[in-house]
């Protein structure tokens, strides 16, 4: 029992929670924005992989870290444009198109990586984002170690969640996006172009997904491995439901999942001998499913989610 307390009391755990949560926050916010406009974006896993690759590659080629992050965003937007073209303009199945984008983007990033980076025994490294020292706060005993040793993109992610919550619920544009996700015909009848709303949300949301992927190669680690996204995109899709399509709750959900993950990592070292480590790896996912089952019962799905919009058709 005291071992558990030791884990909870260690500043390292809480620092890890924020670090693990960051890519999830970006990814979940991106998926949430798409879905609020009525488009499910299952391209998320592939877009994150590509973002991780291209962001890292830009920095490895001499760009600075922020430029790398920006390049990743742009690449995500291009994939978003592709997904929007298929689902919004052509009205194809959002599931199929999304999975297609994921398959394509994942394979394409590995292909490009192999093409552009010489094969070596250990993958080449870059110098990633360094923890941001916040005067005063970072020097606090324990708390400084636990909460204020993050890199800049983590703070960007947290601010972004708040900004998105305000944008969706307090601005005319946010209302227009939500109306498009609920009833695009009603939006059109009020003079809003649902096509434009959906394109915008998917492109911008996909950019965020790619930024989440790039965080892994530019901040959490320092090299690119093709399988490094490891289902984080799918977790993001589930977190959107868990969050009932609300950015604030998405932030909380990402932090909760990250907590489970960080906790099980440390638990392995304490009682790892007695139990196969795969069981520990499972726990965050099982707990997420439980939390999802509890939360999703009350969730109010955007009514037009996954429904293609065609003008004049009811």
């Amino acid at each position: 029992m005291s071992a558990l307390w030791d884990i909870l009391a260690s500043a390292g755990l809480w620092a890890a929670v924020l670090r693990i949560a960051t890519p999830l926050i970006f990814a979940t916010l991106g998926a949430l924005l798409c879905e609020r406009a009525g488009v499910l974006n299952l391209g998320i896993e592939g877009i994150m992989t590509f973002g991780a690759m291209i962001g890292w590659f830009a920095v490895w080629n001499g760009a600075d870290l922020w430029t790398g992050l920006f390049v990743a965003c742009l690449s995500g937007m291009v994939f978003g444009l592709l997904h929007a073209g298929l689902t919004v303009t052509l009205g194809l199945s959002q599931h199929v198109s999304g999975l297609g984008v994921t398959l394509f983007a994942s394979s394409f990033s590995y292909y490009l990586f192999r093409l552009l980076v010489p094969v070596e025994g250990t993958p080449p490294k870059i110098i990633p984002f360094q923890p941001l020292h916040i005067p005063g706060l970072s020097d606090l005993p324990w708390l400084g170690q636990a909460l204020f040793t993050q890199t800049a993109p983590t703070w960007v992610a947290i601010v972004l969640a708040i900004v998105m919550a305000l944008a969706l619920f307090r601005t005319p544009l946010g209302l227009a996006i939500r109306m498009t996700g609920e009833n695009p015909h009603a939006a059109e009848a009020q003079g809003i172009n649902p096509m434009v709303m959906r394109y915008g949300a998917v492109i911008f949301g996909s950019g965020l997904m790619a930024a989440g992927g790039a965080f892994l190669t530019l901040s959490a680690f320092d090299s690119f491995i093709p399988t490094m996204i490891q289902g984080r995109g799918w977790i993001g899709i589930a977190l959107v439901v868990f969050a009932s399509w609300r950015p604030g709750r998405a932030l909380a959900g990402a932090l909760l999942f990250a907590f489970f993950d960080a906790f099980q990592l440390r638990l392995q070292t304490v009682i790892g001998g007695a139990v196969p480590y795969q069981l520990f790896l499972m726990t965050p996912f099982i707990l997420s499913i439980l939390a999802l089952a509890l939360m999703a019962r009350r969730a109010r799905v955007p009514q037009a989610l996954m429904q293609p919009y065609r003008r004049g058709e009811r």
Binding site: R170, P172, L175, A176, M179, A186, A187, A189
Partner: peptide
């Protein structure tokens, strides 16, 4: 126009349904 099948969004509030599209989309605040 009052359509036979209402042009409304069940998940939004009455006020939100009514005011959608009535303000400029680039206004920073509703």
């Amino acid at each position: 126009m009052v359509h036979q099948h209402f042009s409304l969004a069940p998940n939004l509030s009455v006020l939100e349904n009514v005011m959608t599209g009535t303000e400029s989309l680039w206004r920073p605040w509703s």
